[in-house]
């Protein structure tokens, strides 16, 4: 009997655990969507239009995946559901950036999530949320909602209004630990504090500004007058930042970005952003580039 057959026959009871010790760490799981410890983001097409450095990636708005379900129109920056583009899988641990518009009174029925940090940022209208932890809430523009799905959570999301559409960004980050206790939180931010500067809306710290998640990520939103320049200093070495222009126009270093364009930058400590239009609204998502 060869070694493999021996192990197969001895899988139950103590046999399996003996096998584990025997195998040690020589075998790796090569089949996860995330292959560690490679730098994530490697699978993006190089940005030949960048004037900054090699470590950037540009996703023009019109190149995103699109799904039209009638009541739901969604643009996917990264592969999601039926949209599969091997070169648009993730930016670091940022796995999903969906730009959703839901018709009046319509929405997502009760469905499960697990092992994902899910952040919803309403842009327009009111989004009603109900979940298996007993939360029934409505979030609107200026609010931020977070769910740590962990071992499992069930929720529904509906457009609360019968006469107005709701628009929101739904963002999924891989957690830094699988199977955490599920949790829900939402906050209402003072949007005046993002005028011509970046307001922190998310961090890994329970006592910091904004909501917190199980990941070394920081999100900021700013709303800028034309020609206002800001500098963003990364919080953690090794992180990258995905810049998403919610509205207006901006330049990151010398890269011009229009509404709904995305731009990833890594291997840098800081960068500058200049608004090129009045009321330019920008979301910065600083995330680890490895899991």
């Amino acid at each position: 009997m060869n070694r493999k057959e021996f192990l197969k026959k001895g899988l139950f009871g103590t046999g399996m655990f003996a096998a584990t010790a025997t195998l040690g760490n020589i075998l790796n799981n090569d089949n996860d969507e995330i292959k560690k410890p490679e730098v994530l983001g490697f699978n993006h097409i190089p940005n030949t239009d960048s004037k900054i450095m090699e470590n950037t990636i540009l996703h023009k708005a019109h190149t995103r995946g699109h799904a039209n379900h009638g009541w739901l129109k969604s643009y996917h920056t990264f592969s999601f559901a039926n949209y599969h583009n091997p070169e648009r899988m993730h930016f670091g641990v940022l796995r999903v950036l969906n730009d959703d518009t839901v018709d009046p009174g319509m929405g997502f029925g009760t469905h499960p999530h697990d092992n994902m940090e899910i952040i919803s940022i309403p842009l327009e209208g009111d989004l009603e949320h109900k979940d298996s932890m007993g939360n029934t809430t409505v979030i609107k523009s200026g609010d931020v909602q977070v769910m740590s799905a962990g071992t499992g959570i069930f929720h529904s999301e509906y457009n609360k209004n019968k006469d107005q559409r709701v628009k929101f960004l739904q963002i999924w980050l891989y957690p830094n630990k699988r199977n955490v206790q599920p949790r829900y939180d939402q906050i209402t931010l003072n949007v005046a504090e993002r005028k011509n500067k970046f307001q922190q809306i998310l961090s890994p710290n329970t006592d910091d500004e904004g909501v917190w998640i199980h990941q070394d990520a920081w999100f900021h939103i700013g709303k800028f007058d034309n020609e206002v320049t800001s500098q963003y200093q990364l919080k953690k070495k090794g992180n990258g930042v995905y810049v998403f222009v919610i509205s207006g126009s901006a330049s990151v270093e010398n890269q011009l970005l229009e509404t709904r364009d995305g731009f990833g930058i890594w291997d840098t400590d800081a960068f500058t952003i200049t608004a090129n239009a009045e009321n330019t609204e920008i979301l910065l998502m600083e995330v680890p580039m490895t899991l």
């Binding site: 899988l11 799981n29 090569d30 089949n31 499960p112 994902m116 799905a149 891989y174």
Partner: peptide, 21 residues
């Protein structure tokens, strides 16, 4: 660790998200 060794024809995938996404 064990499954890829004993059943190399079986891909082990850690699922995230909990649904169809």
């Amino acid at each position: 660790t064990i499954v890829p060794f004993l059943y190399p024809e079986t891909a082990v995938i850690a699922h995230y998200g909990g649904g169809s996404g």
